[in-house]
Amino acid sequence: MIVYWLCFILFLVGLYGVITKRNLIKIAISLSIMEFSTFLFFTLIGFREGGVAPIVDPADPVKTYVDPLPQAMVLTAIVIGLATTAMLMSVIIRLYRKYGTFDIREIKNLKG
């Protein structure tokens, strides 16, 4: 059970970073930390004690396999995470070129 709690604490660390930090790079890092904790949580749910990786070997059929469904979902999520991070970084590059800073307190034009 302690693994689930540690995984949740990792998520909370990322959440704290997203809310309190004022630096765009730090916010991007915190977002990816939250992503990682979610991936870890999904894989933890699908694990079975004594299981092997879900690759079927016809020569040796009697085995417990770990659950393939959470792994398939995480596989999709990892690639989408890369796409969103790359997009976030490209927005950050544009903002840095225009304002010369990563600090969102100094990017005045974004204030509503």
């Binding site: 879900p54 690759i55 596989l75 995470g81």
Partner: peptide, 18 residues
């Protein structure tokens, strides 16, 4: 450790690119 080799391969590539 959680017996997910596909995820490990994808994650190591994605993490390096990120």
């Amino acid at each position: 450790l959680l017996k997910a080799p596909d995820l490990a391969i994808v994650q190591i590539v994605v993490e390096t690119i990120t």
